[in-house]
Design a protein around this nucleic acid. Structure first.
Length: 299
DNA sequence: CATGCGTGGGA
DNA sequence: TTCCCAAGCAT
């Protein structure tokens, strides 16, 4: 027979003290950080590890301490300063979000989840995270870490399903403490537990505050039974081709001739398709004379 | 709802 | 070395 699910109060009493003792000192968690800093960190952290975000976030905060500061810069500067974080369209959307905050919200990052959700690059997760972490709101924050902790500790499975289900959101909402401030800490605490202890590959159950109540452990830590997770292909993909082109533009202070841009990829049809797509998405700007550059940069 | 979208470090 | 994957979003 399956072990009972641990009650919410039990989880709170175990996880909150653990977080108080083990939380990382991250700059976007410090008292002096702004809602803008939190928003920037959340977008940078989408699919990107903390260690790589840290230096870029610091640089962005010094260059553009407010949404209006970024909005007044060229979009291409945002892409350039994004460096090698990956998925550079996030930089473009963050710039667009800054413009929206400046033009539609008086330069102030909105606190309402529904309003945050209207900003480019801000989805359900990021809107909830900013509302909770920057403004102390009681929001249901469900990221991959939270999903994994809930899957193991509460549901008793090794890993969550590939896509977020309605049931998972309802579970996360049910586990949220009633009190606003406590709820905000709970959200970040569960994420931190997933990031540091309840990790995807080799969970450190020996260090886990939930080890004694974890449904997955009590069931004998059964292996993942669903379909094997498909890794993303890389060699020969459009993503690899696009990555090379954007890198070339990022590393050049001058506009780049189309011939030089096309030289980064041998296959003609794919190379042209990728360049066209980059231009269509606004990540690359075509100039007269067959030159290209990052969008909006003075040259 | 499944896919495409970058990158680099650790197991 | 190869594989996996890290605080998702938009279409």
């Amino acid at each position: 027979m399956r072990p009972a699910r641990p009650a919410a109060g039990v989880l709170h009493d175990l996880v909150l003290p653990w977080y108080a003792a083990h939380q990382r000192d991250l700059p976007w968690r410090r008292p002096d950080r702004s809602p803008w800093g939190v928003l920037v960190s959340e977008v940078m952290l989408q699919q990107t590890p903390v260690s790589r975000v840290l230096p870029v976030w610091q640089r962005w905060m010094s260059l553009w301490p407010t949404p209006s500061a970024l909005a007044d810069a060229a979009a291409g500067e945002a892409v350039r300063e994004w460096g090698r974080l990956g998925y550079p369209r996030r930089a473009l959307r963050l710039h667009a979000a800054a413009v929206a905050v400046r033009d539609d919200h008086g330069g102030v990052v909105p606190a309402e989840e529904a309003v945050l959700r209207t900003l480019p690059g801000v989805g359900d997760y990021t809107a909830a995270a900013v509302a909770a972490f920057a403004f102390g709101r009681r929001a249901t924050v469900v990221d991959t870490n939270v999903r994994r902790v809930h899957a193991r500790a509460v549901t008793g499975t090794a890993l969550p399903a590939p896509s977020l289900s309605r049931a998972e959101v309802e579970l996360a909402t049910a586990l949220l403490p009633e009190d606003d401030a406590r709820a905000a800490v709970w959200n970040v605490a569960v994420m931190e537990l997933g990031a540091l202890v309840c990790t995807a590959r080799a969970p450190r159950c020996g260090d886990c505050p939930l080890a004694t109540v974890c449904a997955w452990r009590l069931a004998g830590s059964p292996a993942h039974d669903g379909p094997p997770r498909r890794g993303q292909a890389w060699q020969g993909t459009d993503r690899q081709c696009r990555g090379r082109m954007v890198q070339l533009l990022r590393d050049s202070t001058e506009p780049v001739p189309g011939d030089a841009l096309r030289a980064v990829w041998p296959e003609e049809a794919q190379r042209d398709r990728c360049l066209d797509a980059l231009v269509a998405e606004g990540l690359v700007e075509p100039l007269d004379g067959g030159l290209f550059r990052l969008p909006g940069l003075a040259s």
